[in-house]
Design a protein around this nucleic acid. Structure first.
Length: 423
RNA sequence: GGAGAGAUGGCUGAGUGGUCGAAAGCAACGGUUUGCUAAAUCGUCGUAGGGGUUAAACUCUACCGCGGGUUCGAAUCCCGCUCUCUCCGCCA
């Protein structure tokens, strides 16, 4: 949620931001509701003040005295007036909340204009794109794929998009998780194990609800949501808490399985491991002081990039345009790795600044020593990294003439060998 | 899953219908005083949302786990829920 005061005081800037994000939302209706709401608050509160004052007087009167009984009569009508006003206020508050939850976060000035992914700006690229004459075999066409990934049985056991990782495949996935966590540890980012299910309040705080409800698996019986990313439990770890200024900046990372319904996806996007319903990911979350959050975003991106560099995978960093970034983000970089076999870029990381959009919903604050007031922290998060697509890039880019896959140097200690042989 | 007990401010803990936003103690912060690693003493000491102001001052309202209800009036009475603790059951 955006600071309602900012919307009230500079609606034009907000309008401009919403336009840049190409999101349909009625700001004027929200502002009107806000105005009505505040008017009614004043009314209700002054009625209550009157009631309170009368109560003090009544407390002094002897019970059952004529004055007392008389007072009860007048107070009764006041009481019912308050109740009526309360009901309309409640309705207004609900409308207000709904309207305000549907206002996106405003993009930072450095965010490029644009409607769709075609307008994203290539911010940086690294590594050599392998030449055309190499073997262009998409991983899903490897003839020995079944020995490391079993899609068929995954479909039998659960459904499409829930593959089994087998043997070297399972070990490679686990090696990547370990490698990413070890790297984070070395960088001084504390590791967390997180719950895989969260309640409604948590899903609301990080913005999955009400916006992306259809993307989450929902356990109806217990009203819990399977996490689509470790960001959700991690960010909610400090929900409703006031932090000490000296704790900031605070960095945490967590490995988790991520569950996504991916309703509406089809075609090339979902072939092989490109898009699955359950995947592993290591996620980093930062809680920082507002004035540092954009520098923190750059260092977060650089950290995630360093992982791809160590793996020797060619990638590019995209600065997302207004229309293609998320609802809650103010600025976002995506990292895409080049998959030679498919001749396409695969997104493996997304690093974002949310400013106070999440912390306002989640009520995560710190006491500012300068103002002496509680201020909202800025939150950021970034994948470091998502496993399956890195897995894909390693397979496709590492494919050798003899059909084996040469593994990145840094993974050799984890895998106990330097290549995966066809079986 | 069953039975019982409980949930009050940073903490401990009073408060069973009316000046209770809430006693008292501890902790914290500021001052004074004495001065050997501290004591005494005075004061301050929750959060949020309105109104107001250039900004303050000032002022109003809400909040005693959460949501309803009763009442002129609820921390206090009633109902539902959540969580914690103890016992029983089950279980990796």
């Amino acid at each position: 949620m955006i600071d309602p005061k900012i919307l009230r005081e500079s609606p034009d800037a907000a309008r401009e931001g919403i336009r840049k994000k190409h999101i349909d939302c009625d700001l004027d209706a929200a502002l009107k509701t806000d105005e009505d709401r505040r008017k009614l608050i004043v009314e209700v509160e002054s009625l209550r003040a009157e009631q309170k004052l009368a109560n003090v007087e009544m407390a002094k009167l002897p019970k059952g005295s004529p004055e007392f009984l008389d007072k009860i009569g007048t107070m009764k009508s006041l009481s019912s007036r308050i109740k009526e006003a309360d009901v309309s206020l409640k309705e207004l508050e609900e409308a207000w909340t709904e309207r305000y939850l549907n206002i996106p976060n405003l993009p930072h000035e450095s965010v490029p204009e644009g409607k769709s992914e075609e307008d994203n700006v290539e911010y940086k690229s690294w590594g050599d794109i392998p030449k055309q004459e190499q073997y262009h075999i998409p991983h899903y066409d490897f003839d020995w794929l079944d020995s490391i990934l079993d899609f068929k049985r995954g479909t039998k056991v659960t459904g499409a998009g829930f593959p089994f990782f087998v043997g070297d495949g399972a070990r490679l996935a686990r090696s990547l998780v370990s490698f990413f966590l070890d790297q984070a540890n070395e960088a001084g980012i504390q590791e967390m194990g997180v719950p895989y299910f969260v309640n409604e309040a948590s899903a609301m705080a990080t913005g999955q609800l009400p916006d992306k409800e259809a993307q989450m698996y929902h356990v109806v019986e217990d009203d819990l949501y399977a996490i689509p990313t470790a960001e959700v439990p991690l960010t909610n770890f400090l929900r409703d808490e006031i932090l000490d200024e000296s704790e900031l900046p605070l960095y945490r990372c967590g490995y988790s399985a991520c569950f996504r319904r991916e309703a509406g996806s089809y075609g090339k996007d979902v072939r092989g491991l490109n898009r699955v319903h359950q995947f592993d990911k290591v996620e980093i979350v930062k809680w920082v002081k507002p004035e540092t959050s954009y520098d923190e975003l750059e260092s977060l991106r650089e950290y995630s990039e360093s992982l791809l560099q160590k793996l020797g995978l060619p990638y590019r960093a995209l600065l997302m345009c207004g229309g293609d970034m998320g609802f809650s983000q103010t600025k976002q970089y995506d990292l895409e790795v080049w998959a030679v076999g498919q001749q396409r870029w695969l997104e493996v990381s997304s690093c974002s600044n949310f400013e106070s959009f999440q912390s306002r919903r989640a009520k995560i604050r710190f006491r500012d020593s300068e103002t002496g007031k509680n201020e909202f922290v800025h939150t950021l998060n970034g994948s470091a990294l998502a496993i399956p697509r890195v897995f894909v890039a390693i397979l496709e880019n590492g494919l050798q003439a003899d059909g084996s896959v040469k593994l990145p140097e840094v993974l050799v200690p984890y895998m106990g060998k330097d290549r995966i042989e066809p079986k």
